[in-house]
Simulated scan of single mutants.
Amino acid sequence: MSEAHHRRKQPVLVRRQLLEVAARLAAEQGMTAVTLDAVSGASGVSKGGLLHHFPNKNALLDALFDSLSERFSAEIEEVMRNDPVPHGRFTRAYLSICASLRDRPAESSGWTQITMALLAEPRLRHRWREWVRLREEEYVGTDSSVNAQIVRLAADGLWLADMLGSHELDAAERQAMLERLAELASL
C-alpha cells in the first residue's frame, strides 16, 4: 500500500493548507496564478485531493473569500468588544480594521488579490455586497446614520488607496484623519 493509505486523514488541515497556498499564490502572482494545478502542486496535495475539497476554481475562490471575510468579521467583532460606545461602534471597528491592513502585509496582500477578483468576478462582487448588506441590517440602530455611511465609504477609499499606494500621508496626517473619521462615526 502507498504511504497515502497509511497516512491519517486530516481534512480540516488539508483544506486550510490549500486555502493558504491559494492566498499566497494570489498575493505573490495575482489571481490568474490561482489554478487548481498550481495550488495542487504548491501544496503537495494531489489534484484529486484538492478536487475533493474544491470541485472547481470557483469553489476555491469562494472558500478563499469566505476565509478572508470570516477573519475580517472576527477582527471587527474583537474591536467592537473593546469599544464602550454603542453608537457607531461597527463603523469605528470597520474603519480601524481597514486602516490597519496596510500595516499587515501578509493579510493585506490576500485582500488586495481578492479585491481585484471582486472587480472582475460578478459572483464575488455579489457576495461582498451581501456581506455589507447583512452588516447594515445588523447594525441599523447604531450605524445607519449618514455620518456612519460616509465613514465606511471613506474607509473603503483608504483601503483602496493603501492597496494602490496612491496617496502618501505622513503618520500624523493619517492619524488625524482616522481620529476625525472615528469622531464622525460617533455623531
Rank of each mutant, 00 (worst) to 15 (best):
residue 3 E to V: 08
residue 4 A to W: 03
residue 4 A to P: 06
residue 8 R to C: 11
residue 8 R to Q: 15
residue 10 Q to E: 13
residue 11 P to K: 11
residue 12 V to N: 09
residue 15 R to P: 06
residue 16 R to E: 07
residue 18 L to P: 10
residue 24 R to L: 01
residue 25 L to Y: 06
residue 29 Q to R: 15
residue 30 G to S: 05
residue 34 V to C: 02
residue 35 T to H: 02
residue 39 V to R: 12
residue 39 V to G: 14
residue 39 V to T: 10
residue 41 G to D: 10
residue 41 G to K: 06
residue 43 S to D: 00
residue 43 S to W: 01
residue 47 K to N: 06
residue 47 K to F: 01
residue 49 G to N: 04
residue 53 H to M: 12
residue 54 F to D: 08
residue 62 D to S: 04
residue 65 F to V: 08
residue 70 E to C: 04
residue 71 R to H: 09
residue 79 V to Y: 00
residue 83 D to I: 10
residue 83 D to L: 06
residue 85 V to S: 03
residue 87 H to N: 11
residue 87 H to E: 13
residue 87 H to Y: 11
residue 89 R to A: 15
residue 89 R to N: 15
residue 91 T to R: 01
residue 91 T to A: 02
residue 92 R to S: 04
residue 94 Y to V: 05
residue 99 A to N: 00
residue 104 R to P: 00
residue 108 S to H: 07
residue 109 S to G: 13
residue 112 T to D: 03
residue 113 Q to E: 15
residue 121 E to T: 12
residue 125 R to D: 09
residue 125 R to T: 06
residue 129 R to Y: 12
residue 130 E to Y: 04
residue 131 W to K: 06
residue 132 V to D: 02
residue 133 R to E: 01
residue 133 R to H: 09
residue 133 R to F: 01
residue 136 E to V: 08
residue 136 E to N: 10
residue 137 E to C: 11
residue 140 V to A: 12
residue 140 V to C: 06
residue 140 V to R: 06
residue 144 S to W: 10
residue 148 A to F: 08
residue 149 Q to R: 12
residue 154 A to L: 08
residue 157 G to L: 11
residue 158 L to I: 14
residue 159 W to M: 07
residue 166 S to T: 01
residue 167 H to D: 05
residue 169 L to H: 14
residue 174 R to I: 02
residue 176 A to H: 15
residue 176 A to E: 14
residue 179 E to D: 10
residue 181 L to C: 08
residue 184 L to A: 00
residue 184 L to Q: 02
residue 186 S to A: 15
